[in-house]
Design a protein around this nucleic acid. Structure first.
Lengths: 222, 222
DNA sequence: GAGAAGCGGATAGCGTGCATCCGCTTCAAC
DNA sequence: GTTGAAGCGGATGCACGCTATCCGCTTCTC
């Protein structure tokens, strides 16, 4: 028999019953792990979490890109949908707050999504979604500027940097205080606004929590 | 002969002339590399950069902690000194701005220093310095609150988180736009203030730069 | 010029992650 | 039931990067 390389993908639908079931398990496991810990999670771990052997994972997915695609198709859709909704806001600034709020929430709750969305195009996947979001962002930013809600000198790229900052913070703090990132998103957004808000700050952390977060951020030092 | 383990430290001053010279080279190399890229730099690289073999490094420094100590003693002093100066400010808020500004600058220009200073106590070294800075910080924060300059609900720990955020940003952007971090430090500080400043934003990045920074932030993805 | 002190860098050990291979199990068509 | 293809598991090999050691050779110093 031809020892067909492990990863040759039998066309979907032609799979044996048990194989189909395993494939689903794998995708679900990947979704969970990627969401929780980002795309750095390895095949071995995905396999174990799905309750199958590594071989089985490689048999269904030629490489990581393919697995990521299967695991992130849906959340990418949500991202695009969030952008669409925000684009319809009456006042552009409200749309911006809504968009930033929902994007960060999506990215924070799914760190794998964050990796592809902010990956600077490093992952081919999802580039079109990112483009769509960026378009809405630019549109809202221009309108908000015209409506006088935007602080002088704010650039579109500032929003990009803020997304990185906030989701990076979130990555280190989710386990300790899931919504802490909102506090600093609030401060940053307030700082981009022409007339500041000064609403009471949300999500005040305890000293314990801050210490724990610092330790995580520093990584296990040696 | 007793094959004295490589790293047994001959007492300083008893070193042979050439050995002394090499030791200095190593410390200088470590200072440079740690400052530029943080404490993750390995012994091998330090050795190579100093123009000596790895063995020579291990002979003088029993472990990484010892080398770090030698390389960071001076910058740690600068940190303490910056805190002292800031504590003497007339108005507490000015002291805070000064302190945050100089701390971030020191930490950004020396990423190794950042690693020990923010390391959540993971590195024994420098704990006393960090304590001293924290004391000044608390003192200024209390005074600023009393003087009515601080936004309601700002906690001392917020400053800690801001230091992490800003220096983390800096870590990914120094190579591209060395002072970009000032822009977001400005926004964040503005957000902690009772009456906002709205000074024109500094250091506007180009689209090119933002893209480059994102790519670095994402790491080389695979 | 002798011997202690110092040197370099090959090498071993370790941890992590990707990818493959192959003997065994399970399915499903007959 | 039988049988052969499809599928399975996970040990295994490879590559990488870092720490740490060892030992034959060189250099300094008295």
């Amino acid at each position: 028999m031809t020892p067909r390389p492990d990863h040759e993908p039998a066309r979907r639908g032609t799979l044996r019953r048990d194989a189909e079931r395993n494939r689903d398990r794998i995708v679900r496991a990947a979704q969970e792990l990627f969401a929780e810990r980002g795309l750095a999670v390895g095949f071995n771990e995905v396999a174990h979490h799905a309750g199958v052997g590594v071989g089985t994972v490689y048999r269904r997915f030629a490489d990581k890109e393919e697995l990521i695609h299967a695991a992130l198709a849906e959340p990418l859709g949500e991202l695009a949908e969030a952008a669409r909704r925000a684009g319809e806001a009456e006042r552009a600034w409200d749309g911006l707050e809504l968009l930033l709020g929902s994007i960060t929430e999506l990215l924070v709750d799914n760190l794998g999504l964050r990796d592809v969305a902010l990956g600077g195009g490093g992952w081919r996947l999802g580039r079109s979604t990112v483009e769509r979001v960026a378009d809405v962002l630019r549109y809202l930013l221009d309108r908000a500027r015209a409506e006088g809600d935007l602080r002088d000198g704010v650039a579109g790229d500032d929003v990009m940097m803020i997304l990185w900052l906030v989701t990076d913070l979130a990555q280190h703090s989710v386990q300790v205080r899931p919504r802490l990132y909102r506090r600093y998103l609030q401060v940053l957004l307030d700082g981009l606004r022409a007339a500041p808000d000064r609403a009471p700050l949300v999500e005040e952390p305890t000293e314990q929590q801050v210490l724990a977060i610092c330790r995580r951020w520093a990584g296990a030092p040696l």
